[in-house]
Design a protein around this nucleic acid. Structure first.
Lengths: 247, 247
DNA sequence: GATAAAGGTTTACGCTGCGTCAAGGTCAAG
DNA sequence: CTTGACCTTGACGCAGCGTAAACCTTTATC
């Protein structure tokens, strides 16, 4: 009482190719192989195949399925792990959808929306003098050209990154951890990397970084981005430690 | 004013490997290649790279990004298409999560829950005589062994499929479409495939399929699964047409 | 008994986006 | 001259099969 590969494939709602694949990876061997090389499957194999397909429908990977089938893994454990992964994936997708929606909205809304929010409040024209004075005209021109070349979508995304960094700093400052703690230093590293990604700036240069830290504290327009003066002080201290250690 | 591959990679927050990859696929070429073969990137390249990374962060595929960069695709269109895909993926994940959760619940809940709901109301012991009479003792024994060998999770999944099929039939019947319409015939095919997946049954045999159709109408315990007698009649007619055409 | 239609076999590339060796040049520093 | 850091070009690996390619077997038909 057995079936050919096509027959069992139709029975179970899959393809002969998949069955050969399962055979290749040792997940489900034919119950019998004819002298002509044909694969034949019996009822036991069909039952096993249905278990495989069921678990696969739930999204489990073939190795995980193999674990369950050989009883080397508890089904509950395997599905539990899998469920965690599914939920993380769902959350990731949800965030990505939100980001794309925002980007699209910005794209359709027009350009000038972004102009004021540049660099998260760091308007190019508004701060032009300051930047030129501190870092030279060249730096400003380069940075400006860079910003202008970005599309709205890119500007929006940039904004997102900037504000994410800002709120992370604010949260860290409020949590009461030390500026030289691992958590704060991780943020400092992100901050420096972010700075380095702006063309026309000195990037990861000690004086530049510490100088900026001072500026954040001194100028409340900047401080606002990090949860006020207290937050800015935290940022400054963390950056100073980081610069001292790595730059 | 240009950077080495590592430098620009750190600037932009990616890896040198990715940059080589982008070069290989023609997405972003180095602005200059030294006599030693080293890749160098200038500011224009950095800007382009940042656009690439931004779009990639939104989940766009590299080919789609290439389309946007070469201005052969509207960013709004590309992101719109992408958004649709993201949403479908999210929905698929949500359904899968629900399925896994249900399966887990069933697994943890114990075994006897399923025993009565077998075959969506088609309890083995309850209908044993009927099955034996119609299809012989062997068929029943085979089918029974098959069912018993399944885990709760598998039984649950099976239930799900059965009830999905039933409600699809009921909906089709109520929608007023003809039994020989494409929609109904698609369901008939699913139905036959489902039947074929039960070991010990004749499977896709004309007499078996049409006979079952008659049984669904004659026995209201079965008819209930398809939205009552009217639904069962619809199923019977659709199956008859299908059997006539394909079996 | 010849022939054609189904169905079977193995072998192997393709897809996504790089990570990760492998094997070996280049370059600045000690 | 030697390290060590950084660069190069291949090329495999991953998940799960889809999809030819090239070639037998079995089955149905004439």
């Amino acid at each position: 009482m057995d079936w050919s590969i096509q027959e069992i494939a139709r029975h179970a709602g899959t393809t002969s190719r998949a069955l050969r694949h399962y055979g290749d990876i040792g997940l489900l061997a034919p119950s019998r192989i004819g002298s002509n090389g044909y694969r034949y499957y019996d009822e036991q194999a069909l039952v096993k195949l249905q278990r495989i397909l069921l678990l696969r429908d739930l999204g489990l990977g073939l190795p995980a399925i193999a674990g369950v089938l050989t009883a080397s893994t508890e089904p509950v454990a395997a599905l539990g792990t899998h469920l965690d992964w599914l939920r993380r994936e769902r959350d990731r997708l949800a965030r990505q959808i939100a980001a794309v929606e925002e980007t699209l909205k910005a794209l359709k809304g027009g350009e000038q929306l972004m102009a004021e929010k540049m660099f998260d409040g760091f308007d190019h024209t508004q701060y032009q003098e300051e930047v030129e004075e501190r870092w030279g005209k060249e730096a400003y021109a380069t940075s400006d050209a860079w910003w202008r070349s970005m599309s709205d979508a890119e500007k929006a995304k940039w904004q997102e990154r900037v504000s994410a960094l800002g709120s992370d700093w604010a949260a860290a400052a409020e949590s009461g951890i030390a500026p030289d703690s691992d958590g704060a230093q991780t943020l400092a590293e992100r901050h420096v990397q972010w700075l380095s990604s702006i063309p026309g700036t000195p990037g990861a240069v000690k004086e530049y970084v510490t100088g900026l830290g001072d500026m954040y504290v001194a100028d409340e327009r900047f401080a606002a981005n990090y949860g006020g003066v207290a937050g800015a002080e935290f940022v400054r201290d963390a950056l100073a430690v980081y610069a001292d250690r790595h730059l």
